[in-house]
Nucleic acid binder design. Structure first.
Length: 1196
RNA sequence: GGGCGGAUAGCUCAGCGGUAGAGCGUCGCCCUUACAAGGCGAGGGUCACAGGUUCAAUCCCUGUUCCGCCCA
């Protein structure tokens, strides 16, 4: 296809995304085969509420599942992602009822069951397609030919079959038990559908007179209105207060009943309240159990709407809360209300409508759960199903091991009606004396008393009553819990109970992917049902994703106004259509980010074990990423000419270094992405892709490719084109599962032959070992390092990119020089050079900016271009950083334990690091001196900062190294002093001048202190002290003494302030810093000298110097910039400030300041590059990190 | 009351024994003919607190404090 039509300049997601989905559908790419030679891969979509609309959580679900499905499909699997929707019993019924009320002012009872259900089906027909459409916007590659609904005929058949079989097996039973009841929804709820929350309530103390005695028992209760339903009061059998009362009776206030006093150790907590508990078995779960234990009568005093029943006398018909008030008033009048006190209590509320749930005694259907739970537990124990993240395994176990029988009947109309039938002829009838209200849904049907009638459970309505032969039946009016049918989803959707090829091919499914909030509701139940009916787990892996919250971590909800609608994100939205918090963020309306950006964002934020805070900023960043991909492709296509990629292997072309390098990097990226996907590492995979495309492919390869593309060499041009197309093809395929639309759009335009018509079914890239090219990656390193060095110089000198400069690059390494020479064609355009001279170290340009790293020295003559003062400042900073780091590393090396116990390679690395840093520092100092301003000052300005002589020509130095720094600058280097080498080369100070000290330091640098004499230790102590390293110094003095050197420890050199001063004036050094009596006081941090710090230091250091921690801390604070900044910024009196100042651990600050980049540099360039996670900036950093040459680069 | 997460740069998040990272935001220089949704450079961190283990702790252990969730 030479149809390389130009791409528009900016990526327009809406335009591109609108086009592809239908094409894919038409070509049936998402259709899975019932049987196939390919390995199966199957995910069933957690069915969303059929009349709902997708929220951002669904978008996450869809994104993850689509990534998995597309990836597997591209990897040669027979991939089935099966869509469906859920009838969502209560939710849907409520929505339709509400609508009915609104539009016609009618209740469902006005319509009757049949008519109402018709309305619900109409509603479903009207809105049921919405979910599907929304999934299409997201690009979800669902097999729509297999779409299912939990109430379609097949699913209903499965539900009936399961119900009947469970009944036949004795696992389904009907019983009158205390269940959770929502008085508003007027239905039973399962334990899971009740949400518990702590509320402020009241504990009332009520006196119950003891019969035949003056005595009374005071019960403490939070629910006085249920008093009229009490059938006992209970005390603890061991409670001395109530000995002898058990077996007697109390007179139940407000009634004429007498109820027994019972002893129950389980119910009663002696410590709580008065130790006397009223027992209302029909209205409290604990009391219910107590009632069973003691065979107490169970009086129901509330109806299905939680109104007081007919038997409650004057309270009859009152709402439970009104009744509470009335009862309390009456008790008050009788003088039986002793007191009330505030009390926190847990209240159960209806998950759906938030009404306070009422325990209610009623006939319901239950699933005997234990026999089902056991195999599910075992399956997970045996690893037949695995949870990802693994942490959910225990949650699963805990719940499964404490599970109760599942109440599955609901007093609703919308749902699977229970396949139980009652003979009209012989079933007991509802009497007139029922206490149930007339409009109770369970009562009205046929007049049969379902509470007492005997059910006939059957797959279809029976023809004759086995008892009386009657032929008229009514079906149980109740419907099943919605989760009952969802529990069958993994096999009911595949055709069960029929034995279908689908079932054979795809069961067990591969992955169950869903939010962790429904692990019990759904996952656990699918496990139980699947194992029971299919004899095998329903899925091999359960991947549970986190909840999506808003940017602030708040749950999204309409009332909070922070809901983010995925379609708004994809398509954009006018401001007035947005939720309030979003409107604030996008006053002009939300731009269309596109599905690809949304998907990539969600994938990138998906982290195990943490909620997702959806950041609009990151969303914007990933939209930019789409644009980047678009424009990189656009660039390539614009430069293709008539080129068409053929089948020749790339290696048959003469590849340039850049070609070999990017091809190698691509293989590694490919490998990493694949590895991440294998372990559900979506964020990691996304990061690798982001990184590779932006930081490596765009920032380096495309830039390097311009040389040949814009050149005259036709063959070279075509080679570059081939590599560009090859890379893009693979990048696009790697990315396709994440960003299906944009990848398809671009892929179609690549000038190459496509083995298949769509990227959807193209092969997922595999790494090509032949293209992995470590030597190319190594060769690129110095080139990259040099370019970056030059860019640093340019950037810090504020040189316009237009200004071409001349550069001198020196390296002692012949190979490096050769590479730079050979690839100067890369160097010059990318670094903006007019000329470059590569040579071994030698004469340096005079007025130049410098960049120094491990084996590279780069100079850019700046005279006339910029103010050299700035360059000097910069170099000083670099030196200071090097010094800081060296101090830190040396401290480590100086510890014999470290040297002895740490792995040799670690020690070696540190030693090498010290050498390198010192060499670097020397070069920088050398350079600094070279660009010194005309010697207007009497002191040598050149060495101002670092205070050390340039190593290279230290012999000739005649000036005091303690010379003052550039005007006004804080002499960091000097302050630091935590640098032994500096001490050793410094102009004689009290300590450092001593040859013995020199010797000791020398040994130190060698990484060992073995053989140090007592005097050595002492000298070392002096040296440390002169540098402000008090704790180190004190330790050395201690050692000296231990070894017999009787000399007293000298006072520490005056701390910080002195230093600062030193730096401000050309003072001949450090030596005579006034002694301070207590070493610990001398917190070296310059700020520490200030009042607050002092205080802190004193506090900390108040202990003997031997105290390791204190001493160490104080000593460490090598007057870091940080310390200074921090403490000065804070109120002096502030404790924290003091603390900080006192601490300012050299370690930390050193680490911080030091070569952040270095670490990167150290690593193999390849590695670094491949790793760096996120974005474009990434690119920048990454590059940096990778270049080995960069190793020595100053930390910035 | 029990359990599980989390606490790292201004914000959203990686990392998790050996020199602290990204994106966005910030600052500086650039409209360099793929991309200003961009390029180059820079600044920014007591890795919640306190102990402990270790040669070495952001990382492992213990405790504390906050935040979130689940279960009872």
């Amino acid at each position: 296809m030479t149809d390389t039509t130009e791409l528009s300049k900016a990526y327009e997601p809406s335009e591109v995304e609108a086009r592809w989905y239908n094409v894919w559908l038409e070509r049936d790419y998402f259709r899975a085969e019932a049987t196939s030679t390919k390995p199966p891969f199957c995910i069933v979509l957690p069915p969303p509420n059929v009349t709902g609309s997708l929220h951002i959580g669904h978008a996450l679900t869809a994104t993850i599942q689509d990534i998995l499905t597309r990836w597997k499909r591209m990897s040669g699997f027979n991939a089935l992602w099966l869509p469906g929707t859920d009838h969502a019993g209560i939710a849907t019924q409520m929505v339709v009822e509400k609508e009915l009320k609104k539009s016609e002012g009618k209740s469902r009872h006005d319509l009757g069951r049949e008519e109402f259900l018709k309305r619900v089906w109409t509603w479903k027909g009207k809105y049921g397609a919405r979910i599907g459409e929304q999934h299409r916007y997201l690009g979800a590659s669902l097999d729509w030919s297999r779409e299912r609904f939990t109430m379609d005929e097949q699913s209903s058949a499965a539900v009936r079959e399961v119900f009947v079989r469970l009944y036949e097996e004795g696992l389904m039973y009907r019983a009158q038990k205390l269940i959770n009841w929502c008085p508003s929804c007027r239905t039973a709820l399962s334990d899971l559908e009740v949400e518990h929350e702590e509320k402020a309530g009241t504990l009332w103390h009520i006196r119950y007179p003891v019969k035949g005695s003056d005595r009374s028992l005071t019960v403490a209760t939070t629910r006085p209105e249920t008093l009229v339903g009490d059938t006992a009061v209970a005390v603890h059998p061991d409670d001395p207060r109530y000995q002898g009362l058990v077996g007697q009776h109390v007179l139940l206030p407000l009634t004429d009943r007498e109820i027994p006093i019972i002893a129950d150790a389980e119910l009663v907590n002696m410590e709580f309240g008065t130790g006397v508990v009223k027992v209302t078995p029909a209205h409290d779960f604990n009391d219910y159990q107590t009632g069973l234990r003691h065979k107490l009568p169970m009086l129901t005093i509330l109806d299905d709407a939680a109104r007081m029943s007919k038997d409650t006398g004057k309270y009859a018909g009152m709402d439970r809360f009104a009744a509470r008030k009335a009862v309390l008033e009456d008790l008050q009048l009788l003088g039986l209300l002793e007191k009330e006190e505030p009390h926190k209590l847990n209240v159960g509320t209806c998950q759906r409508c938030a009404t306070v749930v009422e325990p209610r005694l009623s006939p319901q259907w239950f699933v005997r759960i234990e026999p089902l739970a056991k195999p599910a537990i075992e399956a997970v124990e045996q690893g037949r199903t695995k949870f990802v993240p693994e942490a959910w395994t225990n949650t699963f176990f805990h719940w499964m091991r404490n599970i109760h029988d599942w109440c599955v009947s609901r007093q609703l109309w919308w749902g699977h009606q229970i396949p139980a039938y009652y003979c009209v002829a012989c079933s007991p009838r509802q009497g007139d004396d029922t206490d149930l209200p007339l409009d109770a849904p369970t009562v009205k049907v046929g007049g049969v008393d379902f509470a007492r009638a005997e059910p006939i459970v059957a797959r279809s309505q029976p023809t004759a009553c086995p008892k009386c032969g009657g032929a008229q039946f009514v079906q149980d009016p109740d419907v099943l819990d919605t989760w009952f049918s969802s529990g069958l989803w993994p096999f009911s959707t595949l055709g069960w109970p029929r034995e279908t090829p689908e079932l054979k091919t795809f069961y067990p499914t591969s992955v169950m992917e869903t939010g962790h909030d429904i692990i019990f509701f759904w996952v656990a139940r699918m496990m139980m049902m699947g194992l029971h009916f299919m004899k095998e787990v329903p899925f091999r892996t359960v991947y549970l994703h986190a909840m999506v919250r808003d940017e602030k971590g708040e749950k999204m909800s309409k009332t909070k106004g922070n809901v983010i609608d995925p379609l708004d994100v994809i398509l954009g939205a006018k401001a007035d259509a947005l939720a309030p918090t979003l409107r604030n963020k996008f006053p002009q309306g939300m731009p269309a980010f596109g599905a690809d950006a949304l998907r990539f964002t969600l994938a990138s934020l998906t982290q195990q074990g943490r909620d997702i805070k959806l950041s609009m900023d990151r969303l914007g960043g990933y939209k930019a990423f789409c644009n980047k991909l678009w424009n990189a492709s656009r660039f390539a296509l614009m430069n293709m000419g008539d080129f068409q990629l053929d089948d020749r292997p790339l290696s048959s072309r003469s590849l340039t270094l850049a070609d070999r390098w990017i091809l190698s990097r691509l293989q590694r990226a490919t490998e990493e992405v694949r590895a991440s996907l294998e372990v559900f590492g979506f964020a990691e995979a996304a990061s690798t892709l982001y990184q590779f495309l932006w930081a490596e492919f765009c920032d380096w390869y495309i830039e390097l490719a311009k040389g040949s593309l814009y050149g005259e060499d036709a063959a070279a041009k075509d080679t570059t084109r081939a590599v560009l197309v090859y890379c893009l093809d693979r990048i696009l395929r790697l990315m396709h599962p994440f960003m299906p639309f944009i990848t398809e759009e671009i892929w179609q335009k690549l000038p190459m032959t496509r083995p298949v018509a769509s990227i959807c079914i193209a092969a997922y890239p595999e790494p090509d070992a032949a293209l992995v090219d470590p030597s190319a990656e190594a060769e690129m390193a110095p080139v990259v390092a040099a370019i970056e060095g030059l860019r640093t110089i340019r950037g810090e000198s504020n040189l316009s990119p237009a200004a071409k400069v001349k550069a001198v690059v020196q390296s002692p390494d012949a190979r490096t020089r050769e590479l730079l020479e050979r690839w100067r064609g890369y160097l010059m355009p990318l670094a903006g050079l007019s000329e470059v001279q590569v040579s071994p170290p030698g004469t340096k340009p005079a007025q130049a900016a410098a960049f120094v790293s491990g084996n590279l020295e780069i100079y850019v003559p700046l005279a006339g271009l910029v103010d050299l003062d700035a360059e000097r400042e910069r170099i000083k900073k670099e030196i200071a950083r090097a010094e800081q780091e060296v101090a830190g590393v040396l401290r480590k090396l100086e510890n014999p334990n470290f040297v002895a116990k740490a792995p040799p390679d670690v020690v070696e690395k540190d030693k090498a690091r010290v050498e390198e840093l010192q060499a670097r520092k020397a070069k920088l100092q050398d350079h600094l001196q070279r660009i010194a301003p005309e010697p207007t000052m009497s002191e040598t300005p050149a060495s101002a900062m670092g205070s050390t002589e340039p190593i290279t020509d230290s012999a000739q130095v005649k000036v005091s190294p303690e010379a003052k720094p550039a005007a006004g600058g804080v002499d960091l280097g000097q302050e630091l002093k935590g640098e032994l080498e500096a001490a050793s080369t410094r102009e004689p100070t009290a300590a450092a001048a001593d040859p013995q000290v020199q010797e000791a330091l020398h040994k130190l640098r060698e990484g060992t202190k073995e053989g140090l004499s007592a005097a050595d230790h002492h000298d070392l102590g002096v040296a440390y002290m002169s540098m402000g390293l008090v704790d180190d110094a004190m330790r050395e003095f201690d050692r000296a003494k231990e070894s017999g050197d009787a000399r007293e420890a000298p006072a520490p050199k005056k701390a910080a302030p002195a230093k600062k001063k030193v730096s401000a004036e050309p003072k001949p050094a450090v030596a005579e810093a006034p002694a301070v009596a207590e070493p610990k006081r001398a917190a070296p941090a310059k700020k520490a000298a200030k009042a607050p710090a002092k205080k802190a230091a004193a506090r900390k250091a108040g202990k003997p110097p031997a105290k390791k921690a204190a001493a160490k801390k104080a000593a460490k604070a090598p007057a870091k910039k940080v310390a200074a900044k921090k403490s000065s910024a804070k109120a002096p009196a502030k404790k924290s400030a003091a603390k900080k100042a006192a601490k300012a651990p050299a370690k930390k600050s050193a680490a911080k300041k030091a070569p952040a980049k270095k670490s990167a540099a150290k690593k193999a360039p390849a590695k670094k590059m491949s790793k760096a996670p996120a974005k474009k900036a990434v690119a920048k950093k990454v590059n940096r990190g990778k270049s080995p040459a960069r190793t020595g680069k100053a930390r910035r």
